[in-house]
């Protein structure tokens, strides 16, 4: 590290500062969304999604500040694992939330899954009533 900052250093510092502030802003958005949104499913949007961008920006600013290319593969792997796991956890919580009716139906403008679920439930109860066994 030379004591005299060059123009490149200034640009990198500025870019990573912007990235860090915006990344932190995404965490703030998640917190605000958790408090303000009315039901579980809309809270899932706030809790999981802005972090895809937020984590990317924070990892990118770490990478810019470290100044060694060895650190980039680790950051990339960390981000990719986040990308792989976020939708799965969001799906599992969302699915459980929908099935246990942790949502406000009056806030849905349309629900194309409800009819399917009811049809399946009716079919299952009919089969239970007729022979009590599983047909397949």
């Amino acid at each position: 590290m030379n004591p005299e900052p060059t123009a490149v250093d200034t640009v990198i510092d500025a870019v990573s500062a912007v990235f860090m502030v915006v990344g932190a802003l995404m965490s703030l958005a998640a917190a605000v969304g958790l408090l303000r949104f009315p039901d579980l499913l809309s809270r899932m949007h706030a809790a999981t999604k802005p972090q895809v961008l937020g984590l990317f920006l924070l990892l990118a600013s770490i990478g810019l500040q470290m100044r060694t290319w060895w650190v980039w593969p680790v950051l990339l792997v960390a981000w990719i694992f986040q990308l792989l796991t976020v939708p799965v956890s969001a799906h599992m919580v969302g699915r459980a939330g929908y099935r246990t009716k942790h949502l406000h139906r009056e806030l849905l403008s349309s629900d194309e899954l409800e009819a399917v679920v009811q049809k399946a439930a009716a079919k299952a109860s009919r089969e239970d009533a007729s022979d009590g066994g599983r047909p397949d």
Partner: peptide, 26 residues
Amino acid sequence: KVVAASFQVMYLAAVRGPTVTNAVVA
């Protein structure tokens, strides 16, 4: 799309909040 939609969700959380209307789409 991720960048645009992240800011949109942030706007919705801050401004619309409890009155947001959702849908389940097949």
